[in-house]
Simulated scan of single mutants.
Amino acid sequence: MHAQEAIGAVTSAVAGAGLPAHDAAVVRLGENGVVLLPSAGVLARVVPRVAKDSDPGHEIRIAAWLASQQVPVAHPARPEPIIVGQYVVTLWEYLRESQPADLVTLAECLRRLHAVPVPTKLLPGLSPFDKFDERLATGVGLNISDRTFLRQLRDELSVLWTTSGFALGEAVLHGDAHMENLLVASDGRQAFVDLETVCIGPPEWDLTLTALYYECGWFSAREYVEFAQTYGFDVRRSPSWPVLRMIRMLRMTLWLAQSTDDDPQRQRQLRHRIDTLRDGTAPAGWTGY
């Protein structure tokens, strides 16, 4: 998704809601977009409406349910999504002067999230290879050899996933649990954001990103140890860790392929990620975006 697409969709969406969008600014871009509307005091999330049977209001209902379970979440600023062409726009409260949580706070909030009762409906089961084929087909900078290699890697990991054992059972997961998806406001309030990935599955899935980011060199050993001790489990000690690790690296590579067409630095990093997946040295030299 490009910045102009995201801002255009948001501007069209809020026009009917009577909200100002003259100062709209992109906060984050990837497959989805996050746009800040400072004058309106809201954050807009822009998600491509890929599937005809997709449920645009799902994320809003998840936020309401999590709040009812005393899980810290951002609240919708509008109770219904807004459809703009091929995009779904949802409006959320803007937590002013908020910052990404530190790893200890993330571990504490994940423990709270993973402890809530698992609902019988509402949430889907974890799908580790969700959107894989779509991302592979649309990924920029991938040649035929890359696509063949990544597809074969997915197939191998899919078989391993079905035989993996998980020590922590099943729980409600965030699904994309990293520091930037847990905000802390200046008054101390905490809020999980980007709730479209919330699902049911093994808690090890939510712990894997932080462990992998540590392997990438993005966190110090002290920071990671504090995270694992605060949560009470080090996912790297799990028998399922090698599979979890590889699946996450595969997803991180395909995510990067969605936004490399106009960024030479990202193009180089994408090539590096694929090369290191091939030769087994991943995630050495992986940088974050």
Rank of each mutant, 00 (worst) to 15 (best):
P242M: 10
S68W: 08
Q267F: 00
V89E: 04
L103R: 01
V172R: 00
Y289W: 13
H58Y: 12
G16D: 04
L66K: 06
L270S: 03
P119C: 06
T11H: 11
W65V: 15
Q267H: 02
V159K: 08
W65S: 12
A44G: 02
L103A: 01
L36Q: 07
L110G: 07
R251C: 05
H22T: 14
P100F: 05
M246A: 14
M249R: 07
G139S: 01
F233R: 07
S238C: 11
P117M: 15
L122A: 02
F132N: 03
R251Q: 13
C199G: 00
L19W: 14
Y214P: 00
T260G: 01
R78Q: 13
D206S: 10
D261A: 05
A257Q: 03
S238G: 12
D146W: 05
Y213M: 13
P203A: 08
L106Y: 04
W65I: 15
S259A: 09
G125C: 10
G30S: 11
V47D: 08
E156W: 04
Q265H: 05
L212R: 10
P119Q: 07
D55N: 08
T276M: 10
S98D: 09
G41E: 12
V88I: 15
D187G: 08
T253Q: 04
I82N: 00
R189C: 10
A177V: 03
I144M: 06
